[in-house]
Design a protein around this nucleic acid. Structure first.
Length: 583
RNA sequence: UGGGGCGUCGUCAAGCGGUAAGACACCAGCCUUUGGAGCUGGCAUUCCCAGGUUCGAAUCCUGGCGCCCCAGCCA
């Protein structure tokens, strides 16, 4: 018996940068406009170089993937280069565990930074030298104010700030103090190095921003070499400059930081990359903040960062999403400055679109109902031939055993069928996929509860091809498995993690968690070809949806499948509409 | 008059003075041994509002209105 082919996670090999010719024509966005113009002016000698700068303090989610896609994707399309740079300037929050997971996720998405892997911490020495220069130029000073005092002195959104009493210290004293900060002479929080800009600026970021703070913490890369660490603003632009980044593409909330980004670069007189901001990705029925995702994990609302319900890349991978589906989704979402919320239906569409081509079809009964075919010889077993994927003949065929007792889906039988219900009901005939027509003769029910326990049917041996010789038609085609040959399995159905479109608008987003986000079906029966599957393998369960073998909880005795995404369900839609109209 | 952004279909999103792309969703039909997939057609006389400039405005100007971000020694 030939096993169905499959698509597993092992196929998700990283790809190198794509050719610009792969790009569909017509893609247009404001960043490309800017780049086209820069290219036209031969800015940077026609060079395009971007970067993706994650902080290694958590797992990547699809929002990060957008940033990565914008930065890396544009570099690919313009035949430029892109760097991966860990923005590791805050040792108390960062860890190598995150560095590893981030690299794994990026590779999975198919990006390859080649030898261009950097860390902001690579530049700590250079940053320190540059800080010395600013001090010498009278553009930075050591401030002894406490954090609280600095906040008070900063003023408010509508009132200007006040200058620190330490603002006009002599250069020599600043130099001495700063060197001693570095030498570890002062405790955490006692002093900071600040840029001397303008305490009355409308932009708060320009009111003498902190450049360095004292932090006696062990850094995941530099260990205990430093006890002063640069702030984001002081590190980021300079890191971009050192790496020769031409376009530093980041999200909207950094717009206010651009004047500071520019200011530092200008004072230093070094290569000046251009920061351009775009709107981050939001998707309805989920949350996209690292903080909230962390709460979900730490409070046990989900199993882990890679829980298939999470919008993390590791979660989507475990759920069975193909990386190319995420890329095509991001491509369809586009890039703009206006804040927006993308319908999760678009993501699901992209996932189905790829899986429809890639996933071999297989039959699985999630809620089994036993059917005895009374006129089928006892003990007889037939091997029927089934096509693996009608979308791709090269995926071949497989054999499936058929016998007198089978399971069909409980939902495929209705004793009292509503209008437009094409499935099985008393006296009605339907087709069993790849097999015969069967007709329901009798219903066996529990005397007390009335629950349907079993169906007694007859089959027509003349319909083996799946068609009747007399031209008789059936409206429905059901999937099934042979009772004696079926493999028991567990199936996990995932639904939206939240019950509302915008969980961020909930008083407490925890209150909006969908209690039915995970349904575990433990009594499933799947076709015997699914006996020896590998972790991560993907299938279409006929008439249900796309499923993958869970990579963590799967065992050969007991396969566990995750539903990646359901098939579009026209019947569910009809039923819903009927219900609505009917009452 | 604190500063910085943004407002085009239900949801994303093109458009850059010449008379509203595309996608998802939705609706209708065809097809179908998955009520899947596929195919066909429909879906903004109008671009936050009000004036103005122009032969012509979503695009330019003026004035409103609405929404988002910023007061971490986080990124």
């Amino acid at each position: 018996m030939k096993k169905p082919g499959s698509t597993s996670q092992e196929d998700d090999k990283p790809r190198g940068p794509e050719k610009a010719t792969d790009e569909k024509p017509g893609v247009s966005n404001f960043i490309r406009d800017i780049i086209d113009e820069d290219l036209g002016n031969n800015k940077n000698g026609g060079r395009i170089h971007t970067r993706f700068p994650p902080e290694p303090n958590g797992y990547l989610h699809i929002g990060h993937a957008k940033s990565m896609f914008v930065n890396f994707g544009i570099a690919e399309d313009y035949n430029g280069l892109y760097n991966l740079r860990f923005d590791d300037t805050n040792p108390v929050k960062e860890d190598t565990e995150y560095v590893d997971s981030i690299m794994e996720d990026i590779r999975w998405l198919g990006f390859n930074w080649e030898d261009r892997l950097f860390y902001a911490s690579d530049y700590f020495d250079q940053l320190y030298e540059w800080a010395l220069k600013l001090i010498k130029d009278g553009k930075a000073y050591v401030d002894d104010l406490s954090a609280d005092q600095i906040r008070e002195y900063r003023g408010t959104l509508t009132e200007p700030g006040r200058e620190s009493p330490y603002r006009n210290r002599p250069v020599e004293e600043n130099l001495d103090l700063f060197q001693r900060m570095k030498a570890g002479e002062f405790p955490d929080g006692s002093r900071v190095l600040r840029a001397k800009i303008d305490m009355a600026a409308g932009n708060l970021n320009m009111r003498d921003p902190v450049m360095y703070r004292v932090l006696h913490a062990t850094h995941h890369r530099t260990s205990d070499k430093w006890c002063i660490y640069p702030m984001y603003d002081w590190a980021h632009g300079q890191s971009d400059s050192i790496e020769g980044i031409t376009h530093s593409l980041c999200s909207l909330e950094f717009e206010d930081h651009r004047p500071l980004y520019d200011w530092y670069l200008e004072q230093l007189g070094v290569f000046h990359p251009q920061q351009i901001e775009f709107a981050r990705l939001n998707i309805n029925y989920t949350v996209m903040s690292k903080r909230k995702l962390r709460v979900l994990v730490e409070e046990g609302h989900v199993d882990a960062w890679d829980d298939p319900r999470m919008p993390t890349l590791s979660g989507m991978r475990r759920r069975g999403y193909l990386p190319q589906s995420i890329r095509s989704f991001l491509d369809k979402v586009g890039v703009a400055k206006r804040e927006s919320v993308v319908d999760i239906a678009l993501l699901e569409h992209c996932v189905r679109e790829d899986l429809n081509i890639a996933a071999p079809r297989v039959m699985a009964v999630l809620k089994p109902l036993r059917v005895v075919i009374e006129n089928y010889p006892e003990g007889q077993v037939e091997e029927l031939t089934a096509i693996n994927n009608p979308e791709d003949e090269s995926m071949g065929v497989r054999r499936i055993p058929f016998s007198r007792e089978i399971y069909i889906e409980h939902d495929d039988f209705r004793e009292d069928p509503p209008k437009k219900f094409f499935r099985l009901s008393p006296g009605r005939e339907v087709r069993l996929k790849h097999a015969y027509f069967i007709k329901c003769e009798r219903v066996i029910k529990d005397d007390k509860t009335g629950e349907v326990l079993e169906l007694r049917c007859t089959y027509d041996p003349q319909t083996k091809s799946g068609e009747a010789h007399d031209g008789r038609k059936v409206k429905g085609t059901l999937h099934w498995v042979s009772c004696d040959h079926a493999v028991p399995a567990e199936v996990r159905i995932y639904n939206n993690l939240f019950t509302v479109e915008s969980p961020d608008d909930c008083e407490d987003f925890r209150q909006c968690i969908n209690p039915q986000s995970l349904e575990i079906l433990s009594g499933c029966q799947v076709e015997p070809n699914l006996k020896n599957v590998k972790a991560g393998e993907r299938f279409q369960f006929l008439r249900h949806g796309y499923f993958c073998v869970d990579s963590k909880d799967f065992s050969s005795e007991r396969p566990v499948f995750n539903r990646t995404v359901s098939l579009r369900d026209t019947w569910a839609k009809i039923e819903k509409a009927e219900k609505k109209g009917g009452k």
